[in-house]
């Protein structure tokens, strides 16, 4: 009976979804006259000198939105820690080290993965990538080490410091625009020439800060989740 009701509901949803999206042609040029896509592309190329226009939207045109998003990530990491809090671990954890092959491979790959993450978020305004992607890649590197060694420790103090400093950099760069008499997150640094590493004003600095912040937060999330082990009844 319940499945019948659910299927009727899904049929109604499917009908309206198909009805709406059959009117939007796939790949059709819907951008005639003055429109938001050409505005963003033009501004990104000529006013900001940032070659990756997705980066310029995420960091500059909708930078306030990104600040909120990073805050949501921070709140998620904090909530995870408080939900999984255990007063003290009773008994000992039943976990073992991985095999020698996995441990040597993890050691070998750890530094190149961190380097790749740093490359991705430093070149976020030139090529595909940016703070979110680079930070995730860095968290994946730490995940590899955490899986290979059961007693690998990540210092919560260092993670908190990195995260707070990165968040502070983002907020103070935004506030500097207000102090200079312009808007919040105003691009006040010289913008350079397009496709240079030093171009785009404050955009690369903010994306590097976002990269550190996302990397620290996701590493914290994974570390908290992995430390939640099955304990022997003692």
């Amino acid at each position: 009976m319940k499945k019948v009701i659910v299927l009727i509901l899904l049929a109604v949803v499917a009908y309206y979804l198909v009805d709406v999206f059959s009117q939007i042609k796939f790949g059709e040029n819907r951008f005639q006259g003055e429109n938001v896509r050409d505005f963003y592309l033009d501004k990104s190329k000529n006013d900001l000198h940032v070659s990756n226009s997705v980066t310029s939207i995420v960091v500059n045109f909708r930078g306030f939105d990104t600040l909120g998003e990073v805050t949501v990530l921070f709140l998620a990491a904090t909530a995870l820690g408080s939900v999984l809090y255990r007063r003290k671990a009773h008994g000992e954890a039943v976990l073992f080290n991985a095999s020698t092959i996995v441990r040597s491979g993890a050691h070998l790959l750890f530094a190149p993965i961190l380097l790749l993450g740093a490359y991705v978020f430093i070149h976020g305004h030139l090529s595909p990538g940016g703070g979110f992607q680079g930070g995730t890649i860095i968290a994946t590197g730490f995940l590899l080490m955490l899986l290979a060694y059961h007693d690998y420790k990540v210092s919560h103090g260092v993670l908190t410091w990195v995260e707070s400093l990165a968040g502070l950099t983002f907020a103070s760069l935004g506030l500097t625009g207000l102090i200079l008499g312009k808007t919040f997150l105003e691009n006040f640094l010289p913008i350079g020439t397009i496709n240079d590493l030093f171009s785009g004003g404050i955009i690369p600095i903010i994306y590097i800060a976002v990269g550190f912040k996302v990397g620290a937060e996701l590493t914290g999330v994974l570390y908290t989740m992995l430390n939640e082990k099955e304990y022997k009844k003692s």
Binding site: T136, T140, L222
Partner: peptide, 18 residues
């Protein structure tokens, strides 16, 4: 390509491990 990178890192690796 930006979204593809994000999905490859988060959707394939991190969501699965969690």
């Amino acid at each position: 390509p930006d979204v593809a990178l994000t999905e490859a890192a988060i959707g394939v690796a991190l969501t699965t491990i969690v």
